[in-house]
Nucleic acid binder design. Structure first.
Lengths: 248, 248
DNA sequence: TCGTTGATGTAAACTTTTTTACATTCAAAC
DNA sequence: GTTTGAATGTAAAAAAGTTTACATCAACGA
């Protein structure tokens, strides 16, 4: 599956279209035609060639990055896993718990990333995170943003390992926003990734208050190993109205 | 310009559409309708509301992230600045200069990011970079990817400062892929950003061989301060045929 | 209970995009 | 000096997406 045609199989203009698509996520045929000074039909042919080779995905009026918009067509199994609405609600409630100007640790994960975007709209945070995606959610001209760690662990942009731990241990922060894979019946907050668990534990020690971001689907399940107990968190944010109100 | 309507102004489904769009870059109306179990018309209305509020951009058949696909409509001033084709040619030639399995430093910049994507298609590099975007271009399951630094400096995902310098000084690498803003008539390789210049200098010391990635438009211009002389580079890659051949 | 409001679905008219087929150009090959 | 083929442009037909207008339904307050 990883064997793709070399870029040299395409014309310079086609390679350029591919690069533009990758940089922008989506490009319109009209704008490409204008940009290259050729007809829309020619661009269309280029895009057809690139799509046939699997390098990008065609849409009405343009083309997008492969495997992204397509991913949206979730089968029903993934649906529960995604639950974007729940995550969004949790992320916004969590952001509401954090006062302006606080120093924060942000964990790895999509829910925390959403919280990062919400926080970015407000002024002046000091942010430390081992998630490159969370870091990129902030405008560094308006916030003090720091990435903690060296070794990139996954496509999620997470950093784990010794450097991450050491750097975190030297910090003293107001809040840690922590995600998890599961919360079992006994109140154990758990995750599947041991190296990430280690980071979460150290972050919680470094922070005065820890907030748990967990969608309702996480509760009543189990995972590989324990991060902490529910009672170790200042607040558990599952997106229910009560907690959102309590947060505000 | 930064004042936008709060997310609470939108319905839960609209917020979810927004989140999905931001995560995917582009979403189709058809897939959203299927996903939410409502008619395409309803999704269309949601998207119109979100587009009116400036939260996303409408396209035929879907919606995309604001300010991205739009950015593609370059005015003629930006055109030269972008010169994607040139950058792509330079990036591919640069990637061809690096042998499989080498240890690399990757600089900040779009040209270097393109080189990173080209390198990712090949097996087993040891990569060090102060650009989060370059780091994210690699699949960490197939490469050893490391980000050097802590403080995020700009929306380009660059890391600069003391931590970056210290970590780089301890490294010994095969190749450094360096970008620049200008190369003047005397062969001075220059840049506008002093903190990035400092990082580039240290990286070149840490690497056995330094490759300069510079599109033809960079030559004959000047910038704020000097990174090094052209002669300090093992190879200067401007995308011309000669050098590409020499590289292969 | 009644009427209003807001959200949604449906369908026909309209617009845009895509497809298909064919003409043109230009350069390499014979 | 044709011939050939690849790349491109043009135009009409087909397909897809959008708009507009109207019907439905449930929630809410008088």
């Amino acid at each position: 599956m990883n064997r793709v045609e070399p870029l040299s199989a395409f014309s310079p203009r086609q390679r350029e279209i591919l690069a533009l698509t990758e940089r922008n996520g989506f490009v319109t045929i009209e704008s490409l035609a204008e940009e290259f000074g050729v007809s829309a039909q020619t661009i269309r042919r280029d895009i057809i060639a690139l799509a046939d080779a699997g390098r990008l995905q065609r849409f009405h009026g343009g083309a997008g990055v492969t495997g992204q918009a397509e991913t949206l067509r979730l089968d029903h199994g993934q649906k529960e896993q995604l639950s974007v609405e729940d995550k969004l609600r949790v992320a916004q409630a969590a952001a509401a718990c954090v006062p302006d100007g606080a120093s924060l640790f942000l964990d790895v994960g999509t829910t925390v990333e959403m919280a990062a975007k919400a926080l970015n709209a407000r002024p002046g945070f000091r942010v430390f995170t081992n998630s490159m995606r969370a870091a990129l959610a902030f405008d560094p001209s308006r916030h003090d943003v720091n990435v903690i760690g060296r070794r990139v662990a996954g496509r999620d942009g997470s950093l784990v390992g010794e450097e991450t731990m050491l750097a975190l241990q030297g910090l003293r922060l107001d809040y840690a926003l922590i995600g998890c894979s599961a919360v079992d019946a006994e109140g154990r907050v758990m995750d599947f990734d041991l190296s990430k668990i280690a980071v979460k534990k150290v972050a919680m020690q470094a922070a005065g208050k820890s907030l748990l971001l967990a969608t309702p689907s996480k509760f009543g399940r189990s995972a590989l190993s324990t991060i902490a107990m529910l009672s170790d968190f200042e607040q558990v944010i599952d997106g229910s109205r009560d907690l959102a109100a309590q947060a505000g």
